[in-house]
Design a protein around this nucleic acid. Structure first.
Lengths: 142, 142
DNA sequence: TCGACAGTTTTGAATCGTTCTAAATACCTT
DNA sequence: AAGGTATTTAGAACGATTCAAAACTGTCGA
């Protein structure tokens, strides 16, 4: 399976932070590298905190949460909710949808052109559509 | 706005419980009535617990949770997750999708024929599609 | 009708992921 | 190097949900 190479004006974590106006601290740089230097990822805060630890980076869990939310607000990440009580952060911020493996709790991008929502309702008056999420829930199958 | 009258083989809470093999206890009957006797609803456990209290029915919060999960397992309810840390239970178990009002945290059914997912990916091998959720997130708009 | 037993409910404590708070520290400008 | 603000930290706090053990209730057979 190939990665779609989205042309981005960033070559690395530092520029990515600069581009959204976040001070490049040691922690944010380390987290940005973990998140963005290895293709598309879907991580929870706890996971990322674990990875940072494994990589020898000392970061508190609170900072991981802060950073994930700042990145999300800045448009570098998308928050995806599929299970009660747990948030996933997706490094792919393009329009796309997800498979959710109910058994393992894993989340996976659905290749861009294989889902199509061809008909959409009007937004109720006074509201505007912020985002459309399609989640295909999977179970063990034959 | 009119309710679509889905033809059901149940006329009341008692039969509904019997049909799925759950003992008709005082608590389950009361909750079933609150849930199903007033058209389609989207409730959280806390909300339902509150309504029971208002209606003069003594039920513990733990029982509300147990009952919601039993009803869901029995196919009488659908659990919908749109926000981290809170589950909604939907009395409409037919194929349909949702509007989510991000400001108020309210969930609303999208009329049946106004969303169409016209193209679907294959389920990854070894898995089967359990359910497809489409959530249209709404914000304040002009 | 009466027990008895399994199924249910209850209370309160426990757990989970997440957020908050206040103090300590780091980054950046001068 | 100092100063001031942004950031990070540890730990407490929080809200929704689950758990555990004891009390209760519905049902079925005698």
């Amino acid at each position: 399976m190939r990665e779609v190479m989205t042309a981005r004006p960033f070559s690395n974590a530092l520029e990515r932070l600069r581009s959204v106006g976040l001070r490049p601290t040691r922690q944010r740089l380390a987290l940005a590298r973990l998140l963005f230097d290895r293709g598309n990822r879907h991580v929870t805060a706890e996971q990322l905190h674990g990875e940072a630890g494994d990589a020898g980076v000392r970061v508190s869990l609170a900072t991981v949460y802060n950073t994930l939310h700042q990145f999300t607000a800045a448009g570098l990440l998308n928050e995806v909710v599929v299970e009660p009580g747990r948030s996933y952060f997706d490094t792919n911020v393009d329009e796309h949808h997800h498979f959710f493996f109910e058994d393992s709790g894993r989340l996976q991008d659905i290749p861009g052109n294989t889902v199509l929502v061809s008909k959409m309702p009007e937004a109720p008056s006074g509201t505007a559509i912020r985002r459309v999420d399609v989640i295909i829930r999977l179970g063990a199958g034959k």
